[in-house]
């Protein structure tokens, strides 16, 4: 079957098998490998991307369900050579180690801050509670999202100095 999906602002019209999972479409067919495949059962969240404006676990979404919709992945967070505040926050607060859960965490973090620009620690913990990180013990992820909240102006533009690299 043919699907039309906008991924990170680019329109893709692709022939797919009806059973193709969105995570495999994004990774293997479109070649955006920032979104990861970790568990198959919607438990780990390494595959989180946005379907329209909502974070979803793409290992349990059929590509066909994304037909006519917009997808946003981690590769779209950096805009005009400028990292998103959540990306800067994860670097500043050491919110990542192996990096495997990071893209999904970043997409959830961005979605949280879009809706709640100044979340409490508990709200942050609840927002990422559907995703597993095996390296950080979560504390630095919470700090990273808090950093991003503290270092974003209301329109999303940054009010802090450049991050290294």
């Amino acid at each position: 079957m043919r699907v039309n999906i906008e991924v990170n602002g680019v329109n893709y019209s692709e022939e797919i098998e009806p059973r193709l999972l969105l995570v495999h479409f994004i990774r293997d067919q479109i070649g955006l490998t920032g979104t990861h495949w970790g568990c198959d059962t919607s438990n780990c969240g390494t595959c989180v991307l946005w379907l329209d404006d909502l974070p979803v676990k793409s290992c349990t979404v059929l590509t066909a369900m994304a037909d006519g919709h917009r997808v946003r992945t981690v590769e779209d967070l950096e805009q005009g050579g400028e990292l998103d505040p959540v990306q800067k926050g994860f670097m500043q607060e050491h919110g990542l180690q192996c990096g495997f859960c990071t893209p999904g965490m970043l997409m959830t973090a961005r979605a949280l801050l879009d809706r709640n620009p100044n979340p409490s620690d508990l709200e942050i913990r609840e927002a990422i509670s559907g995703q597993i990180c095996r390296c950080t013990g979560y504390e630095n992820i919470v700090r990273a999202i808090r950093w991003a909240a503290a270092n974003s102006s209301s329109n999303g533009a940054l009010d802090v100095a450049e991050v290294a690299q």
């Binding site: 981690v74 990292l83 500043q92 990096g99 700090r143 808090r146 450049e162 290294a164």
Partner: peptide
């Protein structure tokens, strides 16, 4: 302690942001 600003990299030991983060944060691992 939470560090809220970027610091100059140390010569040798000390708190330094990770070099490898640049690719992981962009989904380019």
């Amino acid at each position: 302690m939470t560090t809220t600003e970027n610091q100059a990299n140390p010569i040798g030991f000390g708190r330094m942001l990770r070099k490898e983060d640049a690719r992981f944060l962009r989904g380019k691992g």
